[in-house]
Design a protein around this nucleic acid. Structure first.
Length: 493
RNA sequence: CGAGAUAUAGCGCAGUUGGUAGCGCGCCACGUUCGGGACGUGGAGGCCGGGCGUUCGAGUCGCCCUAUCUCGACCA
């Protein structure tokens, strides 16, 4: 039986297949009947809720409030910002009709041709346009600024190729949309939110990230600058985990959002937008999982501890139920979330494997032997080690263990990234190293042509120009032209 | 949207030269088990993706759809 999991989750053959199997086996999500969309299953959604709750707290702490805007956006809104049009035109779902009718030939329902919409509606691929159209009415004076609004929503992008959590046609995300009186303040906001994302990724998801700025070709459609956090997955590919955009006055001009400043002059508003999505769950899965399944950081695990009773008969279970109830309360009193699985229909061995697959950080097992000896078995998911310890003081022991696991999986990911981050100076070395994945730090002359050539020849893209990178100048590894600093290359999802 | 592959039980698969459908897991019942995905016995479950053709006869051969997957292109 254990063999079956190993086979299914084995990374030997195909990493993406392994990933997909893991997502499905760990009960996180599945493909839906709708092409490219996914069903997020309860266990997967529980993780998303943890992510949501934590991020939402962090947004509130930085002065933001939540609001909600329409799912449908009039087509004409997309024509107002030139770059935005360019960026999203190809990948939108379009609503053309508002009614169905019975098929005259008796075959179910058909679209009523008489119910064609005057103007098509676009299912939001992102909400800048409809939000800035709304902000026009909200903002007249510098006293109305800043507007610091976030929206939790779903969006749709008709992607050609999809993968659960990493790129689905519909995905859940949050999008912050802020309006400011000055350029400086907007840039400050952009960077502030990038730091919130980086902090969340590292401290909660236990994923080390690089902070940086995108090159022009990777920039968000309509932004002046796109800041991002980039993570490295266990197969050596990079994943963009979050973005924060400085939008300049582009959307304010497109939607005519002006305010009167202190001097009584009309000015266009400065904007930012920032977002992270259910893709974070893909990052979580691919950063920490092993061949036994998911490994969740304690801070985001739907339950941090699972307790499994080992018993021979009903009487034995009754005794354990009583003992575990006390234990659970001790754990809960320390703020630890606990699941006690005393279901009758599964064997202990089955449960051990199951919760390992689900990534529960700590497993406690208690049986007759333990009751006799005053002990309990403690197993940690990250190292797959277990020990039998005295049950007295176990709650504090578990609390410390959870903190240690959180640190340990971050450390592991950080060490992995360090080992996979390589400085290269020649294009030949670059071509060789890119084959084994990882971040490559190399000099680049700053031109889109060189960037494009490297991409075409090696499939590597510039993930970002790092914010806290080494600023030693050099020469481009391809063209020999001068370079201000090294940039980060990788093959990416 | 290009190139390749696949479609048979809930899931994963087998099915030979065309002869009327099978395995493993899971599911149901009973019993023995229960400290790493237990075992035995019995059982339920299929319009073989859809359509058209060839044939006495099609899961199998031919044509046309459709869907999914992998690799490109595109993208968070």
């Amino acid at each position: 039986m254990a063999k079956e999991i190993k086979e299914l989750t084995s990374r030997d053959e195909n990493y993406s297949q392994w990933y997909n199997d893991l997502v499905i086996k760990a009960d996180l999500a599945e493909n839906s009947a709708v092409r490219g969309c996914m069903v997020v299953k309860p266990y997967g959604y529980a993780i998303w809720e943890k992510i949501q709750r934590q991020l939402d707290d962090m947004f509130k702490e930085t002065g933001h409030v939540n609001a909600y805007f329409p799912l449908f956006i009039p087509k004409s809104f997309f024509s107002k910002e030139a770059n935005h049009v360019e960026g999203f035109a190809k990948e939108c779902a379009v609503v053309t009709h508002y009614r169905l009718k019975n098929d005259p030939r008796g075959k179910g329902v058909v679209v009523d041709p008489d119910a064609r919409l005057e103007e098509e509606l676009i299912v939001r691929p992102t909400s800048e346009t409809i939000i800035w159209n709304t902000y026009r009415g909200w903002i007249q004076s510098h006293r109305d600024l800043p507007v610091l609004v976030n929206q939790w929503a779903n969006v749709v992008r008709w992607e050609m190729r999809t993968r659960l959590f990493l790129r689905t046609a519909e995905f859940l995300w949050q999008e912050g949309h802020t309006a400011h009186a000055t350029r400086e303040e907007a840039i400050e906001e952009t960077v502030k939110m990038l730091n919130v994302y980086a902090c969340f990724a590292e401290q909660y998801m236990a994923i080390p990230v690089l902070k940086g700025v995108k090159t022009a070709s990777e920039r968000f459609a309509g932004a002046e600058d796109t800041y991002c956090i980039e993570a490295l997955m266990q197969d050596g590919k990079a994943l963009q985990a979050g973005t924060s955009h400085f939008l300049g006055q582009n959307f304010a001009k497109a939607f005519d959002v002006q305010f009167l400043n202190r001097e009584g002059q009309r000015e266009y508003v400065w904007a930012t937008s920032w977002g992270v999505s259910t893709r974070l769950m893909g990052a979580l899965i691919m950063s920490h999982s092993d061949n036994n399944g998911l490994v969740l950081p304690p801070k985001l695990a739907p339950y941090q501890v699972v307790i499994i009773p080992v018993y021979k008969d009903d009487a034995g279970l009754a005794v354990l139920n009583e003992r575990v109830a006390v234990l659970s309360n001790e754990l809960k009193a320390l703020g630890i979330s606990v699941k006690y699985d005393n279901s009758l229909n599964k064997k202990p061995g089955w449960k051990f494997a199951e919760y390992e697959l689900k990534g529960v950080p700590v497993r406690l097992a208690m049986g007759a032997r333990d009751l006799e000896n005053g002990t309990i078995e403690v197993a940690r998911r990250d190292t797959l080690t277990k020990e039998t310890v005295p049950v007295d003081g176990i709650a504090l022991h578990v609390k410390a263990l959870l903190e240690d696991i959180q640190r340990n999986i971050y450390r592991k990911a950080l060490d992995y990234r360090a080992a996979k981050t390589i400085t290269v100076d020649s294009y030949d070395a670059f071509k060789e190293k890119i084959e084994t994945g990882g971040f490559l730090l190399a000099h680049w002359d700053g031109t889109p042509e060189t960037e494009e050539r490297i991409k075409a020849e090696t499939k590597a893209t510039i993930r970002c120009i790092p914010l806290d990178g080494d600023l030693t100048p050099g020469v481009d590894m391809v063209t020999g032209k001068p370079s201000k600093q090294r940039v980060v290359f990788a093959r990416a999802y």
